[in-house]
Amino acid sequence: MAGKKIPSFNISLRKGFFKNELFKMCLSNDDVIFECLQDKSKNFTTPLEKVTKITIYEGKSREIEIRTKDEVIFGNFNSTRTLNRAINIFGSFFSEKFSHVCL
C-alpha cells in the first residue's frame, strides 16, 4: 500500500448472485484498495494502471462500476452523501477515465 491514501468510501460490492459484502474502498497513489469489513481474508487491491474506466450511476441505486483490464467490479454506495463525495473525488483523481451518469 505505497502512497498516501485519500478519503475512503464504504460500498457494498456484488460478490455473487444476490450476495453483497460491505467493503471500505480507498484510493492511493498506486492502487484501489478494497478492505472487506466482514472478513479481512477477502481484502484485495487493484493497481491504478489496470483501471480502464470508472462509472458512477447517480439515481435510486447509487451504483459504481469499475472496469479493469482483468475484471469488472460492481457495487453500490450506501448513502447519497457518500456518492456525492465520491463523484467529486473520482472526477479529479481519474479525470478522463471517470464518467458520472444521472438516471
Results as ranks from 00 to 15, higher is better:
Lys4Leu: 05
Lys5Val: 05
Lys5Ala: 09
Lys5Glu: 10
Ile6His: 05
Ser8Gly: 14
Asn10Tyr: 14
Ile11Asn: 01
Ile11Glu: 02
Ser12Ala: 07
Leu13Pro: 00
Leu13Cys: 00
Arg14Met: 12
Arg14Trp: 07
Phe17Gly: 03
Phe17Ala: 10
Phe18Arg: 11
Lys19Ser: 14
Glu21His: 00
Glu21Leu: 05
Lys24Tyr: 04
Lys24Val: 10
Lys24Arg: 14
Cys26Ala: 14
Cys26Asp: 12
Leu27Thr: 01
Asn29Asp: 15
Asp30Ile: 10
Asp30Gln: 15
Asp30Ala: 13
Asp31Pro: 10
Val32Trp: 02
Ile33Cys: 10
Leu37Phe: 00
Gln38His: 08
Asp39Thr: 06
Lys40Tyr: 11
Lys40Ile: 12
Ser41His: 06
Ser41Val: 06
Phe44Lys: 06
Thr45Pro: 02
Pro47Lys: 07
Leu48Met: 13
Glu49Lys: 12
Glu49Asn: 13
Lys53Ser: 07
Lys53Ala: 06
Lys53Trp: 04
Thr55Leu: 12
Thr55Arg: 08
Ile56Glu: 04
Glu58Phe: 05
Gly59Phe: 11
Lys60Val: 08
Lys60Phe: 08
Arg62Ser: 05
Glu63Pro: 04
Glu63Tyr: 06
Glu63Gln: 14
Thr68Gly: 03
Lys69Val: 01
Val72Ala: 04
Ile73Glu: 08
Phe74Pro: 00
Gly75Thr: 06
Ser79Asp: 10
Ser79Thr: 15
Thr80Trp: 08
Thr80Gly: 07
Thr80Ile: 11
Thr80Cys: 05
Arg81Ser: 14
Arg81Gly: 10
Leu83Met: 14
Leu83Lys: 04
Leu83Asp: 02
Arg85Glu: 14
Ala86Trp: 01
Ile87Ser: 09
Ile89Lys: 03
Phe90Gly: 06
Phe90Lys: 06
Ser92Leu: 11
Ser92Asn: 14
Ser92Asp: 13
Lys97Gly: 03
Phe98Ser: 04
Ser99Val: 10
Val101Thr: 15
Cys102Trp: 13
Leu103Gly: 06
